[in-house]
């Protein structure tokens, strides 16, 4: 009996470490990886795939800028989605189409890398259909895990991935 209470207490102590942290939701998700751009990009693509998404395309924004004489560091946008989900949502909720597939911007800051994306929780305020709520919530959870995964790939001391 006492033992069970103790185990419960141990779980309570663990609870705040849950990765989703939706209570702390900010409109933008932004993360810094201590890894240089190529490694962070590899970590990002692996983290996206690990959550069951397909990467559809990588837009090389920096290349376009440099070809026209503008100075920039590495800057890419990674598009990703789940094929059936994109098709289903586009058919049922056409207003979502401009926001599909999902994307993460990734760019170098000197020898580190920054990732930025919209927090999908924000979409719930734009598209109030109740059926979409769990979709946005899942995207948010996945993105938290993806961003944390990339961050932690460069920060061994932060502990294991969520």
């Amino acid at each position: 009996m006492r033992l069970r209470a103790l185990i419960a207490a141990a779980f309570v102590a663990l609870a705040p470490a849950a990765p989703a942290a939706p209570a702390a939701a900010q409109d933008l998700m932004i993360a810094r990886s201590a890894q240089p751009f190529p490694e962070a990009m590899t970590a990002l693509q692996a983290a996206i795939a690990a959550r069951g998404y397909t990467i559809s395309r990588v837009q090389r924004v920096d290349v376009g800028l440099e070809n026209r004489g503008y100075k920039t560091d590495k800057y890419r946008v990674v598009f990703y989605g789940k094929p059936e989900e994109v098709a289903r949502l586009a058919a049922a909720y056409p207003d979502l189409i401009p926001f599909l597939p999902l994307s993460v911007a990734i760019f170098a800051e000197e020898d580190e890398t920054i990732l930025v994306t919209t927090n999908p929780a924000l979409y719930a305020g734009m598209f109030p259909q109740p059926e979409l709520k769990p979709v946005f919530a899942r995207w948010e959870q996945d993105l938290v895990a993806i961003m944390e995964g990339v961050r932690k790939a460069g920060h061994a001391w932060l502990g294991p991935e969520p």
Partner: peptide
């Protein structure tokens, strides 16, 4: 736009 705030890039192109 990127000069003002590089975070806008996720809506590119």
């Amino acid at each position: 736009a990127l000069g003002v705030d590089p975070r806008v890039g996720m809506f590119l192109p």
